[in-house]
Design a protein around this nucleic acid. Sequence first.
DNA 1: AAATAATTTAAGCGAATGCTTAACTAACCG
DNA 2: CGGTTAGTTAAGCATTCGCTTAAATTATTT
Lengths: 107, 107
Amino acid sequence: MSRPVASADIFQAIADPTRRAILDRLRSGEQPVKQLAEPFEMSLPAISQHLQILCNAGLVSQQKSGRQRLYRLNPIPLRQVSEWVARYEPFWQQKLDALGDYLEENP
Amino acid sequence: MSRPVASADIFQAIADPTRRAILDRLRSGEQPVKQLAEPFEMSLPAISQHLQILCNAGLVSQQKSGRQRLYRLNPIPLRQVSEWVARYEPFWQQKLDALGDYLEENP
DNA sequence: AAATAATTTAAGCGAATGCTTAACTAACCG
DNA sequence: CGGTTAGTTAAGCATTCGCTTAAATTATTT
């Protein structure tokens, strides 16, 4: 097999810019592959492989409709990312507050 | 060169579990490499390389102190991740609401 | 000055990643 | 049926990744 396991890890799945763009694109509703692939300068199989990785990560689900396959966004696993990054929010607030104070004191 | 550019992309930087763990670890304050590396079953150079990638992504900064190098968390680039993922929050709210409704109607 | 400690740099290696082209499968249409 | 459309699977390839061990660098200690 050539692309067997295709990491089910969310962070890995969203690491690739094309995959993030696909997800962004899916926010406007479910779409068939060809339409989804349209803005990318990349072969269809490449997109198909990205979709499979997103599928394995649970970020996307597919449904057959005639001869096309509709892909639909499933954002729920992204909560994992949201929760992880949220733990850092107090830190950057603090950093930005400090920067603000500095700028106030040194105008 | 062996590890030249080391992608400055944030999403790439946080894709690796070890690097996320390092960041998590740094939330408790700045630390020298050896201490930072302690819980990982991995050689010191490996950790050093991860730190360099985090550095390139701007997620971490270093400061020399005697013969050790203190690494400090800089969470600000994580806002990029936070902002990206935030765009999906309305979607999963919707999904979870639907799930809640379903469970209420099918107890 | 020699020894030791903290860390990085260098080189190399196997595995994973992102892509390609070619071949396949399945659904629709004349 | 035969042809076209939509998509996936397969195979291969170059690059990147994450790691290792060995050597180099820099700072402290004796």
